[in-house]
Design a protein around this nucleic acid. Structure first.
Ligand SMILES: [Mn+2]
Ligand SMILES: [Mn+2]
Ligand SMILES: [Mn+2]
Ligand SMILES: [Mn+2]
Lengths: 222, 222
DNA sequence: TTAATTTGTTAGTCTAGGCTAACTTATTTA
DNA sequence: TAAATAAGTTAGCCTAGACTAACAAATTAA
């Protein structure tokens, strides 16, 4: 349909992220609820509405899936979100950890022209400040299945490709220890006891937790 | 208080515009309702809420007034609205008549940094694309009492200072006949029969209706 | 100065989108 | 396979912000 509410858009985007970036095979009602920080009842209710409007398909008690229409909405939202993050970061002196919250609002502004002109103004950026790809005006996007730093083995060498942008304190921490997009990282040691990982990059050696490494996405070099 | 809803903000802005730019001495519940295209009942309800939150003062059946707090919210909203209009017009290829609708959404984005950085990025513009002043970061604003083209007398000469930006078709019409900000306009004749006004500007002579002239704001030269 | 009209208020209803509590169906685990 | 647990659903309630219909107060006109 023509006009979705902010909430409807957020549910579709969340489901899309879980389905594509989450790497899970089945996404259920409660997972979506947890991701969005709402109750399962709210999610159930919204899913019902979005099924009626033909954005989601699912069977009773079954897994949730997006229709083509649903995917289109989600991808357009992600495009807007990432273009705004890029704008805030490159032109308005926002830092890494400040852009997401504001983009979360800006992504719901309804104007096709606005987002396409913003894209042109910035000369069609390919990635946002956190390393995530930006879908183009036609809705084309390439999902590079996410490889987390935590999934590597001792001795592996990789490049930092992107980071989860949803936590401000995490992003601050990343900057603070000196990690940056395209840093080359070597897995020095994985400690069996608590799964913490000792990494080396730019002559720095740091030990990070499994939780930290779960939020760092990399491209394996060797 | 800290966080107002979009609706609360819109009511405060509307009341501010009516009180300052409208030139009316008393603004009542129903006028506010009409301006916002909602029912008097809705307005009554919202005014009650805004009184409780100390943004509006009024007596039962009395006129509506803004508290200092209320004025501050309204002015900040107007600042955001006009800065966004300026950005859309100057950087994103939006035309005169396209900016208002999108700015109406953008003005509700909550981020002090966003608006102040946008201001800096554009090098502190003083007026928006329709000729209206832009309040500064401290909330300072100067209301130049609006003089409408329709209030002049035959023979008067004026400069086009600003236009009402709320009607797309009006703005298109203005551009179409060739009027632009700072055009020098002479009142050639006022026709008593229907109050239509014959004006001359840039070697053009046009007759416009009273309704048209009500939406054109000028600075009298002589 | 009374009647008509305009303006403001109240009550009750609706939709969107949250919530909790209780219940049902599926999936695990013993 | 039966019980325990997890996942999904439903019912009922809440708030924000709209609406209409009915009514009350204030203003204007006769
Ligand atoms: Mn983000
Ligand atoms: Mn959002
Ligand atoms: Mn405007
Ligand atoms: Mn608005």
């Amino acid at each position: 349909m023509i006009n979705l509410t902010k909430s409807e858009e957020d549910y579709l985007k969340a489901l899309f992220q879980l389905l594509t970036e989450g790497g899970k095979s089945k996404i259920g009602n409660n997972q979506l609820a947890e991701y969005l920080n709402v109750s399962p009842a709210s999610t159930n209710n919204m899913v019902k509405k979005l099924k009626a409007k033909d954005y989601i398909v699912s069977e009773r008690y079954g897994k949730l899936e997006l229709t083509d229409q649903g995917i289109e909405i989600a991808v357009r939202l992600i495009r807007k979100h990432r273009l705004w993050e890029t704008f805030l970061y490159n032109y308005l002196n926002f830092s890494w950890d400040e852009v997401h919250e504001v983009a979360e609002q800006l992504e719901h502004i309804k104007s096709r022209k606005l987002v396409d002109e913003l894209d042109r103004f910035m000369e069609y950026p390919k990635v946002d400040p956190h390393g995530e790809m930006i879908p183009d005006a036609d809705g084309a996007y390439n999902i590079t299945p996410k490889v987390t730093l935590s999934s590597l083995k001792e001795g592996d060498i990789c490049k930092l490709a992107a980071v989860n942008d949803a936590s401000v304190s995490f992003l601050r921490y990343v900057s603070q220890i000196g990690l940056a997009l395209s840093s080359t990282i070597e897995i020095v040691e994985i400690r069996d006891f608590d799964k913490s990982i000792c990494i080396r990059f730019d002559d720095t050696v740091e030990t990070v937790t499994k939780k930290f490494a779960d939020n760092v996405f990399v491209k394996i070099i060797s």
